[in-house]
Simulated scan of single mutants.
Amino acid sequence: MARLILLLNCGSSSIKYQVIDADTEGVVASGLVQKVGQDAVGTLDHTVGGETHHVEHRFGTHAGALGTVMEQFRQHGPNLDEVIAVGHRTVHGGRTFKHTTMITSAVVDKLIDLYEVAPLHNPAAVAGIEGAQAALPDVPHVAVFDTAFFSDLPAEAQTYALPTDLSEELGILKYGFHGTSHDYVSSAAAEFLGKTRKELKIIVLHLGNGASASAIDGGRPIETSMGLTPMQGLVMGTRSGDIDPGLVAFLHRKKGWKAAKIDDVLNKQSGMLGLTGRTDMREVKVLVDEGDERAINGVNVYVHRLVSYIGSYTALLGGLDALVFTAGVGENADWIRELVVNRLAPFGVELDAEANATRSKEARAISTPTSKVKVLVVPTNEELAMVRQVVATLAE
């Protein structure tokens, strides 16, 4: 009998899932539910045995959407009686959760307490947990936290220059996000290079609609770009990334906007959407090729921010062995990688143009053999990393 693990990633309006065999680490089934909780007809695509089953339905809640997902499992498989655990991607663990954790009612209560710092993510995660527990009540449920990998950042990196009493009272510090991806990718990069992480100084660029950078020294993260919330750092699909904090008060004075409005603008209307009118880098590239000045400037801002972080992190690391691109943009937008790496040429970083243009789902080097820094593309696999963490937690 197979030992299956169901992995759930509940976003604000979507549910991604995979079923992975804990022994072979092979994907048995996968699916995506879109437009959850929206006033529109959503879709569910359930893939098993090489065949995709499509459903169109209005998914009012995450619990209702999960009910439809469970019906797909009953109709098309695999048999959920073989599931030994459910792993839940959980974005924000705060100061409490520094490791993958078995879910109890007390854990759920604490996740609810963290809604204020992860308003887009933790409510969806809790809804997914409660729905999955109702559907599969007899197996353990495990929370895998995006913040866990960065929980032991050096104090100098975690601490904001605010009144200490205020930071301690409210838990204001840099938590970092995408930790599961940064952990997996840095390990995979070291393996590709035939070394251990302890031997390497690595910068990982996780570039998707959400984007983050990390500096990893000897296997330990020493800095990351996201902070108290996932809004700090790089330019993202709809998030501004770094801004002058004084902008918040400025917008309040000039526009009369309240906190919720400002938060909405910075989280959902900024980034590449605000700069170019697009969030998909493929669409941005079309505009750039057409000579659209707004798009060209937006890309320049995006690349400028990346190069700034690479330079800063290289200084903090005291050198750099490998620069690693991952996630949707990092893995697929060769033109973005080219723009970034070419800006590093004065430091002896050399791009292999042919290797960079080659599409592959495998880890690969895109730098020349003589480059002073290895530049890699390493596909992320957060689900596999989650499975390994769930298995390890079950064994404890």
Rank of each mutant, 00 (worst) to 15 (best):
P137I: 13
D21C: 12
V265C: 07
I129V: 14
E25Y: 12
N381V: 06
G256R: 11
E283T: 01
M236D: 11
S167C: 15
G50C: 06
N209T: 13
P78R: 10
N297Y: 11
G128S: 03
A40N: 01
N381M: 09
Q389Y: 00
N300K: 15
V303D: 03
I103V: 15
C10H: 06
R282K: 13
S12R: 07
A189F: 05
L306S: 05
T159H: 00
R220F: 03
I202A: 01
H88D: 08
A395V: 06
G218M: 13
A118H: 02
F145A: 11
P123A: 12
D321H: 14
I20K: 09
A106P: 00
K361W: 00
Q133R: 15
L320W: 08
G26M: 05
G210A: 10
V248E: 09
V126T: 10
G208E: 02
H99G: 00
I366H: 09
Q72S: 14
E130K: 15
L234E: 11
K195E: 14
E156K: 14
V288E: 12
L228E: 08
L114R: 02
Y17M: 14
L266N: 11
Y175I: 06
I262H: 08
T368V: 05
G246Q: 12
L32N: 05
T52W: 01
T279Y: 03
H178Y: 05
V284E: 03
V341S: 12
V41C: 06
R239S: 09
A345G: 00
R364F: 05
S308C: 04
K198E: 15
A2I: 04
Q34L: 07
M272Y: 03
E396P: 00
V91W: 01
